[in-house]
Write a protein that binds this DNA or RNA. Structure first.
Lengths: 75, 75
DNA sequence: CCTGCATGTCAAATATCTTTTACATTCCTT
DNA sequence: AAGGAATGTAAAAGATATTTGACATGCAGG
């Protein structure tokens, strides 16, 4: 299971129905890669993450949210 | 060449001379991986980046700084 | 109905990151 | 001088991310 969630789908639509293909072109990866990241199939590279945040002009942390290992710390 | 710079070395020492080994243990990678990332030999995974930021209790963007493709935009 | 567009998905190949093992250097302490 | 701790580095193997090419679905319009 992945250590973070993301809001790419929401950001794409808030950005005027930007397609996965458009986003892929803008960040320099393939459509399949965007789809996989968006669905949480695997983690993006740090570079792809930065580029996505840049496209939407938001901080990286508002695209990807890390869910630390709170399992043992309780809260 | 890498698309970003990092301040891991500075953060480690500001955090009381934390060694590469200590940081590696805390984020769950090997000492060699920390050394390579710190020296910019390659990009860390998004997960490793998030964990490093968490260890130092700073936002991810103050550990890694993205240098967009300003090559063509001039400034 | 047919076409085009956006998306989901899969398998195989390639690229990139990470580990493991090993050895080197430097600095500090005894 | 000898020993330990921290760091640099390297090659091979392993794990993970990304690409390529392909085929499927659902939906909107002509």
């Amino acid at each position: 299971m992945l250590p973070f969630t993301n809001h790419i789908r929401r950001l794409r639509f808030e950005a005027g129905e930007m397609t996965q293909q458009d986003l892929a072109d803008r960040i320099g990866v393939t459509r399949q890669t965007v789809a996989a990241i968006e669905q949480g199939k695997y983690s993006p590279s740090l570079e792809a993450a930065f580029r996505i945040a840049q496209v939407f002009r938001v901080p990286l942390e508002s695209v990807f949210q890390w869910q630390g290992d709170r399992a043992s710390t309780g809260r």
